[in-house]
Design a protein around this nucleic acid. Sequence first.
DNA 1: TTCCTTACTGCACGTTTGTGCAAATAGCTT
DNA 2: AAGCTATTTGCACAAACGTGCAGTAAGGAA
Lengths: 320, 320
Amino acid sequence: MARSRHSDALRAAQMYYLQDLTMDAIARELRTSRSTVSRLLSSARETGLVQVQIRSPFDTGPELESQIRNQYGVDVHVVPVLDTLNEAETLDRVAMQAARTIGPLVDSNAIIGVAWGATLSAVSRHLTRKVTHDSIVVQLNGAGNMQTTGITYASDIMRRFGSAYGARVEQFPVPAFFDHAATKTAMWNERSVQRILDLQARMSIAIFGVGSVDSDYPSHVYAGGYLDERDLSMLAADDVVGDVATVFFRSDGSSDGITLNERSTGPSHEQLRQVRRRICVVSGASKINGLQGALAAGLATDLILDEASARRLVTFNGHS
Amino acid sequence: MARSRHSDALRAAQMYYLQDLTMDAIARELRTSRSTVSRLLSSARETGLVQVQIRSPFDTGPELESQIRNQYGVDVHVVPVLDTLNEAETLDRVAMQAARTIGPLVDSNAIIGVAWGATLSAVSRHLTRKVTHDSIVVQLNGAGNMQTTGITYASDIMRRFGSAYGARVEQFPVPAFFDHAATKTAMWNERSVQRILDLQARMSIAIFGVGSVDSDYPSHVYAGGYLDERDLSMLAADDVVGDVATVFFRSDGSSDGITLNERSTGPSHEQLRQVRRRICVVSGASKINGLQGALAAGLATDLILDEASARRLVTFNGHS
DNA sequence: TTCCTTACTGCACGTTTGTGCAAATAGCTT
DNA sequence: AAGCTATTTGCACAAACGTGCAGTAAGGAA
């Protein structure tokens, strides 16, 4: 009668979600208390045993979604939030919904590329667990800067992804930007680095936010000591509007001739576009410019963003 | 502000299931009462907007499931029920869980073959709605007998499947068994019948129970006036243990030389085995013999059954 | 064995949720 | 417009649920 906790949780979940019994009835069948059943069910949800999925039937879905879907050819998930919420609250709710939306996409043998930043950090805090086999979480770009090696910040994100999905975590211990392009070339020939690059080349899922240059609430990359004055003015001269995983682009999605990209450590847009599922999470209206560029560049297959931004994105394009 | 009911339901569902807000909070955001939100959420579940799925990780799942899986090579879903429940209650709970398990498998453009009988009737009553396009529900075998054309009984089942998935329903207006094999041959050449046979040949999903000859609680086919005394003694002489969609088989799964099959209207086992997903629903320990034969014949890819039957199935095979 | 640590359980309470009912609203017909 | 019917809404109450807390069982070390 060594019915393990896990097996009880499964039985309870089946009875609760599939047979519509009350916790009370389940408790009697399992010969335990109702509160224990309540806890079994939370643990079942917690560990990903129970997955709740919302399928918005495309055709009938809110027009905001279908407009964006048509304009940019991405799968959109608009997160409903009150316009009156502040940036932090919005981010939190977008992140939670993003985490739950990502869950079902992750499968065994996946190689999951993960960027870092405020958005990804929030997402990582809301991931629901899901057991997979032989999955790998790989860091998309370096995180070091002039002050720190960036280990703690970026690696917390990575670790959370890894433990949520039971995946091996592969960090990328290089700075976000090299000072000299030649160093990058040299490093890229190191076998330790090539192992990471090889994993990145085989990614099945990539998850990232976007950086936006003129954001009121500037992205880490532009404010965190990663770039100096000279770098920033070079970006301005090149008409850069934003970045994905420290690789910059212009408003029309192009990125040729942006010299800073030769020193950055994220995957090239070309390479990123090879990934089957590329999930972009955006929260906060101030990221519109960056987002618009990222979409123009075709970097995402799936877009998760808050309602206010979605609205702005549609009008933004409507005017141009 | 013509935010339709449906669109509100979607927003509410996202906030409730994906952002963990309380109904109270959602009501405030939607400017309505909490009870309306409660109703919106039920309708979201009702219409299949929200899907709850339970993924029992194979490896760690209860050993009963993995034993059956290994022995018979089918995907098993054991439904936990108290052994003390009566047949009717057990059937109801198995049917509910079966209905919810089937839901996620149904997709647009599916051709769903449906048998009829007490089990399927119960399942049909618990289906959760799900919007699909261009799906078709096709009746697997005739339902007429000496007293009635069987229209009402079988067609209720079909109709419920059709309306749950928004699918076109194709009935099969022939008796369950012809009196003469020659009539069947003749009918099978009629174009109206061939249309149905053609649909059956293109099924992507088939859903059926099993009939068991020695069941205490005998299946419709053996008790409902479909067969006469002579037929029943012929079945006994041929060592028949059960049927799927009025096609009979022996304990080892074979069906060659069972003459009654030449007069029955269901798809041959050979044809049934072509179907990608073949879902067998079984409730009640008295169906063991029939089930064992059906599994030996390889008729199912997925099996949904109650716990008591699952246990009996394992010991049954253990002894043989 | 005894003591300590850790994890689980049931109780009790406050919160959250489902639902019958009456009022209000929307949609149709005359 | 009036009148009718079919839905939809909010209220109020009961049922179902989550969780802090204290008590208990299960290991582990000395």
